[in-house]
Design a binder for these strands. Sequence first.
RNA 1: GCGGAUGGCCGGAUGGCCGCGGGUGACUGUCGGGGCUUGCCUCGGCGUGAUCCGAGGAAAGUCCGGACUCCACAAGGCAACGGUGCCGGGUAACGCCCGGCGGGGGCAACCCCAGGGAAAGCGCCACAGAAAACAGACUACCUGGCUUUCGCCUGCGAAAGCUCGGGAAAAGGUGAAACGGUGGGGUAAGAGCCCACCGCGCCCCUGGCAACAGGGGCGGCACGGCAAGCCCCACCGGGAGCAAUGCCAAAUAGGGAUCGCGCGGGGUUCGCCCCGGGGCCGCCUUGGCCCCAGCAGAUCCGGGUUGGCAGCUUGAGCGUCCUGGCAACAGGCCGCCUAGAGGAAUGGUCAUCACCGGGGCAACCCGGGACAGAAUCCGGCUUACAGGCCGUCCGCGCGU
Length: 116
Amino acid sequence: MTTTRIETLTKRPDFLACARAAKAPAPAFLLQARNRRDKDDLTRVGFTCSKKVGNAVARNRAKRRLRAIARAILPAHGQPGWDYVLIGRAGATASRDYMELEADLIRTLRKVHGPK
RNA sequence: GCGGAUGGCCGGAUGGCCGCGGGUGACUGUCGGGGCUUGCCUCGGCGUGAUCCGAGGAAAGUCCGGACUCCACAAGGCAACGGUGCCGGGUAACGCCCGGCGGGGGCAACCCCAGGGAAAGCGCCACAGAAAACAGACUACCUGGCUUUCGCCUGCGAAAGCUCGGGAAAAGGUGAAACGGUGGGGUAAGAGCCCACCGCGCCCCUGGCAACAGGGGCGGCACGGCAAGCCCCACCGGGAGCAAUGCCAAAUAGGGAUCGCGCGGGGUUCGCCCCGGGGCCGCCUUGGCCCCAGCAGAUCCGGGUUGGCAGCUUGAGCGUCCUGGCAACAGGCCGCCUAGAGGAAUGGUCAUCACCGGGGCAACCCGGGACAGAAUCCGGCUUACAGGCCGUCCGCGCGU
């Protein structure tokens, strides 16, 4: 069993690169993803919740729920060598049912990987 | 019981499963460095499992006050700018807190106050009103004169009137405010014109550390308000901030400092001496600094960038009790260690219980969770907040 390690994105250029690549919308978030095409098979993920999501409390809660589904889904459904960015939406990210949130992520991942 | 005032506290609980940040020590686990007695010791990173800790009363607004760090800083005087403003106390400090005083509101408990100076000066006082700051007079009042009418009879009286003169500022009405108020005397009518009380001003005495309060005397009223318009007075105040600042490593172009040679005019015994010009330090005086010349040299320095480490949490700390104080608070004994991230942890999800709202006779069912997320750290202020708990006091009603 290969333990795919997951790292968190921290650099602004990485976020911008993802924003220019594939996008897939979901009711409670927006997924951006790209294949880095380098030697490393690391999977990386970043989270963005802008001021549009709400105040600091609302942004934190949205980010935590996104982090929770990413940790649950990505080891099985993510692909090595890819970067993913999850963007929170006002209201929906905090209120959508958790099981549906996970299903949304699986569906959108399939979509961004798809055409390849 | 109802209504009200005020002080303090809490801000769901427990348990599965899966996770995150930090500390501690562990490992037959790995990778790298160092040491040597060459298979051990040691340091660091990663991994694994263990254990402990992990958001708030406002963490918020960033409005005051500090600690800490860097920069600036010769003395005196003057000026400017900003802040504070009853008195006493507390504090590291404050624009904060406590206790008083004065004024205002409330039956009361209690609450509110930007609360120094208006005889230093300038400015302003809307609307209304005759008049808004220095006196003046619209209506009305008193009186003289004149005209008309009437009564008695040749002068007086009464009434009405006047582009007329004088007195007076009590009455009316306006206003936030009208040149002291109320009552009496006085007068042609009136007026501090005189008197009593109240208010106001000055002086004295008593009490109080003081703000101030009480009392006495004198004054015949002279001094309208606004200082959150300028201002005056007293007191306080350097600037920037943890993205401060310090250290390490990597990689490199341009820069800076010191030394050397040289540097306005004149003299020189070659040690120096005399005489300048310009600029800066808020201004002035004393004073200080820099420039008036650069270079082909020598030595040294480290900025910016990226990464890492420190600053970074033991502190004006928290709790029980005791002592002093009306209190804010201070002192003492004992005990405790309570987040330290850096695209930023402190969570996700499920269940049970408690709470609130709705439905139901009930078992129960359905729905809900305020304001809000540490970022160097403290002391305050202000603002936001579902719901709940405890204490003290006041008024009214009832019972004893």
